[in-house]
C-alpha cells in the first residue's frame, strides 16, 4: 500500500509536468518538462519492480530524447518562443 501511495504521488507529479509541458510558451521549458515526465516515469517503473525498463527510460526517454530535441531546435533555428514563427529575412532570403 505504501508503494501504491508513492506511485500515486509520482503520478500527480508526472501529470503536472505533462500539463506544464503542453502549456508552456517557451519550447525550452517544455522540452525540459517532458524530460522530467520521463524521469519520474522511470522512478515509477523502479517502484513497480521493472528495473530493466527503468534503466531504459532514464537513459533514452529522459537523456537522449532531450538531447535530440535540443539539437533539432538549434538546427531548425527555431526561436524559443513557440508563437514567434515568422522566419527571419536572412533565413528566408538565403535559401529558397
Amino acid at each position: 500500500m505504501l508503494v501504491d501511495a508513492a506511485i500515486l504521488v509520482s503520478g500527480f507529479v508526472m501529470i503536472a509536468a505533462g500539463i506544464g509541458a503542453v502549456l508552456a510558451r517557451s519550447l525550452l521549458v517544455s522540452i525540459l518538462l517532458s524530460g522530467g515526465v520521463s524521469l519520474v516515469a522511470s522512478l515509477v517503473f523502479l517502484l513497480m519492480g521493472a528495473p530493466d525498463v527503468a534503466m531504459t527510460e532514464a537513459a533514452i526517454g529522459s537523456g537522449l530524447t532531450t538531447v535530440v530535441y535540443l539539437y533539432a531546435m538549434a538546427r531548425a533555428r527555431q526561436p524559443d518562443e513557440e508563437d514567434a514563427d515568422p522566419l527571419g529575412d536572412a533565413v528566408k532570403g538565403g535559401r529558397r
Binding site: 528495473p51 530493466d52 527503468a54 534503466m55 531504459t56 537513459a59 533514452i60 537523456g63 537522449l64 538531447v67
Partner: peptide, 17 residues
Amino acid sequence: TPGGGFQGGVVIATALL
C-alpha cells in the same frame, strides 16, 4: 543484472555525443 543491449548501446552513444 538489469540492463542489456539497448541500455549499453545508449551509453556508448553518449560517449560519442
